[in-house]
Design a protein around this nucleic acid. Structure first.
Ligand SMILES: [Fe+3]
Length: 904
DNA sequence: AAGAAAAAAAAA
């Protein structure tokens, strides 16, 4: 083998060799490696994000082209023997030791091609050169493009292979240097700049690789087409890349200038105080954190969008991602943003609005705005998008949640953003999606300790990447607000902490490099409330209270803490002759949604007096986001913030007259005596002790409410929250359980801290536990759950339950949706398996075969439960976690109930 | 004794 390669044999290495039939014109069974590298480099250079890395486009092109240098190895080339580069390597050997081309790439870049790559690196203003470890950080970023970071160090190459390979690696580097002619990159004086480059480069590489690997956009060419590699790049790759980026929906979208709130929301005539404040408040110049605490109904979402637009218009951000705690709220927010998002951009731009969560493609609204896949023809999509008011999402961005994060405007679950700071595959793509955008997190108060800690990590990461964030919340405790602010400032490398002192509510906290500013805000006129608190400690009093209100024709709700209590109370009230509705999460989704619709119709804004005369017994499902209004409200004791949330459902709307005219919330709770014994809560509310683990928090909540006797909003809210959160006030009898709960919280925090990515470690295997067997989750589950899909045998076939409830779901193309609408989630210890009779085995297998692979294969995660109709309703059968027989009863009114079989 | 909530595969 020669030391240097002078012929054209380099062009025979393949980079891709899986031709798809539909591709434009198939003239080659493989795509030369050099062509692919140049394709991807061209995409990277032309992506709008490339401007934010602080590199010259020639330097960037060079770095990113090298991402697949590891594909030169015999190990990789032998994967498709028909395409083996005989011109270079001679005959294809029968056996090759397999290795990963990302790790091989890192080794080639960091060791074998060190000298050849030297011209890429130069000295900084102080004359300091690149250190080997600094260089390695760059190579790790481009080489680790398979979803997780690579480690190199150990040389896995056989000596013979290395000898064979090195000349081609050297030649490849020479060819690329000749094309890009990069000026040397000055060494970095500040570690944080290099770290930011490393993370951003890693994300950009993968993003460009995904686009550049799409065959419809980059049809395979022949080795002779890259004989002039430079010509290929300038005349071919760059043009293709330009078109591909347009088709992907990632062409630059120009931000419109901010011209006042009225431009964004023409339908809002009078702006609320919080909106007015954020329209004019002066923001810090650098990355900014804005924490907005205000009541529901204050218009804080619009206020946040105004702030986001201002940050974008001043050049701080290129887009927006809105994160919500649930898929349902994300879907609703998508609809709201659909009206406004185009005004954030100039009319000539074509920004996409994407929905990012696990079930986005089941949302009809989102699917309806997806552009047709314009892989082959990008004129169709242009047409649809010309209307500047039209909502649109490119097919490429809309097809998957990681890509959805890359859209100019995204809406999704917070989990999608949190995965950017967890060691999950392609976390860097999520980071790239969030980088440079305003991260808007709604309902920030709703997070448990585990998610709070992830949120802290996300803010730190986002700030370090130069991003701004807006957090929306009801009242946060001071310590939580302080934590979030500190995290953001740590990301900005501001070690000195800023003290927050303001106890006003509503409140806006503005945080930047120079410190924090707290801006109290007036409450929206008409939102102030004064609700009397009445405590009752025996069930019969509450029952009487409810019956009495119902007899007067009032809209009554009782929020109970456990599903079993919901069902028990509902049945007890029915026995007294009341008309009762039941609402909780243990229903097949199709039935739950039907109940939700009815609840909204009766108790929402448009319910008539006749509709409203009804009793609703519900679990925590009505606590959040549903716009409901009751004349009379009861609730089981819960932590203070939740009681306040629930109280928000009392007389929420403007109504001319009410059958019961009294601003009072009735709390079912043991009396908060001065020296409660350990059974204080469980004696009255046995289930509650298991749901809300800290009895001291419950006790303080009850005590504070009893002492104040009212919930006055907004001025009393902070006080209520802070006093209930005062952990120094724990009575002896509750000490043990309270400590235990606190320990659980600490453990959850610890688990999150162990899981999250360490920004400062860079994109290395050391940045987190990347190699762990178990999937790392965005939420901590205290106990395992199973997903039960309800099915019914009909005509020898298993039908999803939902298809029998709604005929529109009975058609084949709705099958996937029908199955997800037939799901109920239950604790695994109550139901762990559903046996199938021999005669039904085949039909069940046929049904499961229609499920996606992971649903089908995770047999203990996804159960198919067959229901059959009996005189007492729908019944089924299964085993609980201990393998004991259980009977299942499903009812559209009460939901899914499991009972251990009585041994006669 | 136990609420509600999300994720998820391949292949770059
Ligand atoms: Fe690649």
């Amino acid at each position: 083998m020669p030391d240097t390669v002078e012929d054209n044999s380099l062009n025979f290495f393949w980079g891709k060799a899986r031709p798809v039939a539909e591709a434009e014109e198939v003239i080659s069974s493989m795509h030369p490696l050099i062509a692919h590298m140049l394709d991807v480099a061209a995409v990277a250079i032309l992506l709008p994000e490339s401007k934010c890395l602080g590199l010259d486009c020639r330097q960037l092109g060079m770095l990113i082209a090298l991402h697949d240098i590891g594909k030169l190895t015999p190990a990789f080339q032998s994967k498709v023997p028909e395409c083996w580069p005989e011109q270079a390597f001679g005959r294809c050997p029968d056996e090759v030791v397999m290795s990963r081309h990302d790790a091989d790439g890192l080794f080639l870049l960091d060791h074998i091609c060190k000298d050849q790559l030297a011209p890429l690196f130069g000295t900084n203003a102080d004359g300091l050169d690149w250190s080997p470890t600094d260089k390695k950080q760059l190579w790790r970023a481009v080489a680790g493009h398979h979803g997780q970071p690579v480690s190199s160090d150990e040389n896995k190459f056989q000596n013979a292979d290395l000898k064979l390979l090195a000349p081609y690696a050297h030649k490849l580097v020479r060819v690329l240097l000749d094309i890009f002619r990069p000026p040397p990159i000055p060494s970095y004086s500040f570690l944080e700049d290099l770290l930011q480059l490393e993370w951003r480069l890693a994300g950009l590489t993968v993003q460009a690789d995904w686009i550049g690997s799409r065959q419809e956009w980059f049809p395979y060419v022949r080795p002779e087409d890259v004989a002039d590699a430079s010509g290929y790049f300038w005349n071919h790759a760059l043009h293709r890349a330009q078109a591909a980026i347009a088709s992907a929906g990632l062409s630059p979208a120009n931000i419109s200038p901010f011209q006042g709130m009225a431009r964004l929301f023409p339908h809002i005539c009078n702006s609320s105080p919080i909106q007015a404040l954020l329209e004019v408040a002066s923001f810090p110049a650098d990355p900014t954190l804005i924490v907005i605490e205000d009541m529901t109904g204050s218009g804080k979402t619009e206020a946040a969008l105004v702030a986001a637009h201002r940050l974008m218009a001043s050049g701080h951000a290129s887009g927006l991602f809105v994160a919500l705690p649930t898929m349902a709220t994300a879907n609703a927010m998508f609809d709201r943003l659909a009206i406004a998002y185009r005004s954030l951009f100039q009319p000539s731009s074509h920004p996409s609005l994407a929905l990012a969560h696990g079930r986005a493609l089941l949302d009809e609204r989102f699917v309806s705005v997806l552009a047709p896949d314009d892989a082959l023809d990008n004129t169709t999509v242009k047409k649809g998008r010309d209307d500047a008011a039209e909502v649109c999402c490119s097919a490429w961005l809309g097809s998957e949640s990681r890509r959805a994060l890359l859209a100019q405007v995204g809406v999704g679950t917070i989990d999608q953003a949190l995965m950017a700071v967890l060691p999950v595959r392609f976390a860097t793509v999520r980071q790239a999606g969030l980088a440079g955008k305003v991260l808007l997190v709604d309902e920030c108060h709703a997070y448990d300790p585990y998610m709070q800690e992830e949120m802290v990590a996300l803010l730190r990461f986002h700030a370090a990447m130069g991003g701004s964030a807006i957090l929306l919340s009801a009242t946060l405790t001071k310590s939580v607000r302080q934590k979030l602010v500190t995290a953001f400032r740590e990301g900005l490398r501001q070690k000195e902490s800023v003290g927050l002192s303001c106890m006003a509510y509503p409140l806006v906290t503005l945080v930047g490099r120079d410190g924090a500013e707290e801006l109290p805000c007036a409450p929206r006129p008409g939102l102030a409330r004064n609700i009397a608190v009445r405590q009752m400690s025996d069930a019969s009093s509450i029952m009487a209270y409810v019956s009495d209100a119902a007899a007067q024709g009032a809209a009554v709700a009782w929020v109970r803490n456990t599903v079993d209590d919901v069902i028990t109370s509902a049945k007890a009230l029915e026995a007294e002759g009341l008309d009762v509705m039941v609402f909780h999460a243990r229903f097949a989704m199709v039935d739950r949604l039907a109940i939700e619709r009815e609840v909204l119709a009766r108790f929402g804004k448009n319910g008539t007096t006749a509709d409203r005369s009804r009793v609703l017994i519900a679990s925590q499902v009505i606590e959040q986001s549903l716009d409901l209004d009751f004349d009379v409200l009861c609730t089981d004791l819960a932590p203070m913030d939740l009681i306040i949330q629930r109280a928000g459902r009392l007389r929420r709307h403007e109504r001319a007259q009410r059958p019961v005219d009294c601003d009072e919330i009735c709390i079912f709770s043991p009396n908060p005596v001065a020296d409660p014994d350990p059974q204080w809560i469980s004696r009255v509310l046995p289930g509650t002790a298991a749901v809300y683990r800290d009895p001291a928090l419950l006790w303080r909540t009850a005590k504070v409410l009893q002492c104040k006797g009212q919930i006055r909003s907004p001025d009393m809210i902070r006080e209520l929250i802070e006093e209930a959160a005062d952990t120094s006030d724990v009575p002896n009898g509750l000490m043990m359980a309270s400590d235990e709960a606190e320990g659980k919280g600490r453990a959850a925090r610890g688990a999150a801290i162990r899981n999250i990515l360490n920004y400062d470690a860079g994109y290395t295997p050391d940045s987190a536990l990347w190699e762990r067997e178990v999937r790392i989750s965005t939420r901590l589950e205290e106990r395992p759950y199973v997903t039960v899909r309800l099915g019914v045998m009909k005509d020898g076939q298993v039908w999803p339950w939902a298809a029998l409830q709604q005929t529109s779901l009975a058609v084949p193309h709705e099958r996937k949706r029908a199955w997800t609408l037939s799901e109920v989630s239950v604790a695994q210890h109550t139901l762990a398996a559903c046996p199938v009779a021999d005669t039904q085995m085949e039909a069940v297998a046929a049904a499961r075969a229609e499920w996606s692979r992971w649903e089908r294969e995770a047999e203990d995660q996804f159960l198919l439960l067959l229901l059959h109709e009996t005189e007492e309703g729908w019944k089924g059968f299964g085993f609980n976690g201990k393998g004991q027989d259980v009977d299942i009863c499903y009812d559209k009114k009460y939901g899914f109930q499991i009972s251990k079989r009585n041994l006669a």
